[in-house]
Design a protein around this nucleic acid. Structure first.
Lengths: 340, 340
DNA sequence: CTGAAAGCGCTAACAC
DNA sequence: GTGTTAGCGCTTTCAG
């Protein structure tokens, strides 16, 4: 790593400025000189230091991504979308994984600020629980453009791409109603999460509009993981007055539901109709044909990155808040049918 | 971003050196002075520049990760493992996604070198096809510690964590033989890939050891994707002298096989036994109980990161090549049984 | 315990 | 077309 622009300059018998010029294609350099410099660069296997350049230009060409669970395909796809657009714009990515913990989010935010990155795309953890004042303070005074992806941060206003969970849940529930169902259960996520509340609102709205009474006994809360909905589904199956359909609000949870149904030889949708939330690629690859409302993932990443780039290019009205709300797409595959 | 160590120094009426000292807990600072400096830092909401620090110390505390497909859960888990250990050691991560393309790998390598990162963990694309001389040249002369994860790079020798694909395939095949199968088909990946060849070797070895003749008609090549094995499986099912078991060598491909089997109401394992390669979490969540040999993912990431850290700490014998080979774990769930 | 000064590798006016 | 010079923001001897 010892070799610098100085070494190149000396060996090529020019000034550092000239080397810099050929490196950046800026200003005028005689073709002959350029060639000489290039040769030395090749010969010495020189790679310029982005660090030094960043310090000098105050530009890092780097953005930060903060996600709760890098191993969840949902976020994997988001990152893929982001990285595609970042690539096209020659932006590097610093990745921070938070294990769904608010304090690690805070740490990541600080780290990214130290790195003097140009902007941040964050998919915050959904937990609505714990906003320390330090967290909010950091977020608000960070002085770096931030784009929220499918997030919700209390007390604060940020630009971002949001999913309309209410509408998604509404569409899913209505699909079941339209198919003829009247007894519709919901297996929702953790009760104190915003997305959980939003999805419940959509469910309620659809039922209300169709004059179906919301029965408490049909409302269940899991923890987003499949075991919880596996147990809940078994419980549902053993109910006296059991529903004819279940709306399961997360991609992991619907797996548990399917498992419980298969185990007891319950035919989908004949004996029990179901509809899910979020993409179920793997399940459908297996040929199961489960209906769902799908939040776009790769597209969300792309849209977020584009919004960030826009922000970076319009430093003037930097403080304007932009929000784009994406309504999940309803994809019907037959699992929602009512077959009396 | 205007505010620097100088501003802090001025306002706190000390020298930059002193500010630096309290920032880094280095050297002696009178408690009183420290407090004064800290207060100003808080007041001005100052965050030191990692860029400037890096330039000054020649340390970036950053490593690079290069993966072919960030949206594939396999790599998501690897990254999770890496990021866990990186976190514990206060190392940042720059992420590069290559879309399984060798030229993007090259680009990523150069970029990371410019960023003066401390080390690189790379999971190269498996394609054995195209190694430009520039690629190999860059790789060999990059002057940064590199750890290979489950990779194979022709002509070159690197430290890394490797999966014993031969042994894995051997174990899988033998599990079928031990269960009583004699007619065993294999649905393998792309024919020119190293992992494909290795897995075939393991298959052959197990059959040979048990005096079972390798029948060409039972050997199939897909493209790692599920459609290919879906079609191949349908073909297998329609064979005159059809096998009683199939070894499917990738996590995506076995989904296609399962789909074909389900569609035709072929009971697993009664009418057709199967065994896969790589984890099948989602499938097993559904309660399908498919046997497989599992390459560890999170563990691989962790092991790779630890190996890299070791390397960084022993700059002296930096050139020593370390290889750790992990044998995939055989997990039997019943889908391999022979039920005549 | 604290400060002055040099330097990390590069860019960007400004001269020539 | 090319070189000189002064930083970018921080750390680090070396003095005191």
């Amino acid at each position: 790593m010892a070799i610098t622009i100085k070494d190149i300059a000396k060996k090529a018998q020019v000034s550092r400025t000239t080397v810099s010029r050929v490196l950046n294609d800026s200003g005028y350099v005689k073709e002959e000189t350029r060639k000489k410099v290039m040769d030395v660069i090749k010969e010495l296997n020189y790679t310029p230091s982005a660090i030094a350049r960043s310090l000098s230009t105050s530009k890092t060409n780097t953005i930060g991504i903060i996600v709760p669970e890098i191993n969840n395909p949902f976020f994997g796809e988001i990152i893929k979308g982001i990285s595609q657009i970042a690539d096209e714009n020659n932006l590097n990515i610093i990745l921070c994984n938070t294990d769904d913990k608010r304090d690690k989010e805070l740490k990541a935010l600080k780290l990214l600020k130290e790195q003097r990155i140009e902007g941040i795309i964050i998919t915050p953890t959904y937990a609505e629980d714990h906003f320390s004042s330090e967290y909010l303070n950091t977020l608000e005074h960070i002085g770096i453009p931030i784009i929220l992806l499918d997030g919700y941060v209390k007390y604060s206003e940020f630009s971002g791409i949001f999913i309309d969970h209410i509408k998604g849940a509404y569409d899913a529930t209505r699909a079941l109603i339209n198919a003829g169902h009247k007894k519709i259960a919901i297996i929702n996520g953790k009760q104190n999460y915003t997305i959980t509340k939003d999805r419940f609102k959509g469910y309620v709205k659809a039922l209300n509009e169709n004059n179906i009474i919301i029965e408490d006994k049909y409302v269940f809360y899991g923890d987003f993981d499949y075991e919880s909905s596996y147990e809940i589904t078994k419980k549902i199956l053993s109910m006296e007055d059991r529903p004819s359909a279940i709306f399961v609000t997360s991609n992991m949870m619907i797996l548990g539901t399917i498992k419980a149904l298969y185990e007891q030889n319950i035919n989908i949708p004949k004996d029990m109709a179901i509809i899910g939330f979020d993409k179920l690629d793997l399940v459908n690859i297996l040929g199961m044909n489960i209906s769902s409302v799908n939040g776009p993932t790769i597209e969300m990443g792309k849209a977020g990155m584009k919004m960030l780039i826009d922000k970076l290019n319009n430093v003037s009205q930097n403080d304007e808040i932009k929000r784009r709300i994406i309504v999940p797409e309803l994809v019907l595959k037959g699992s929602e049918k009512f077959i009396p």
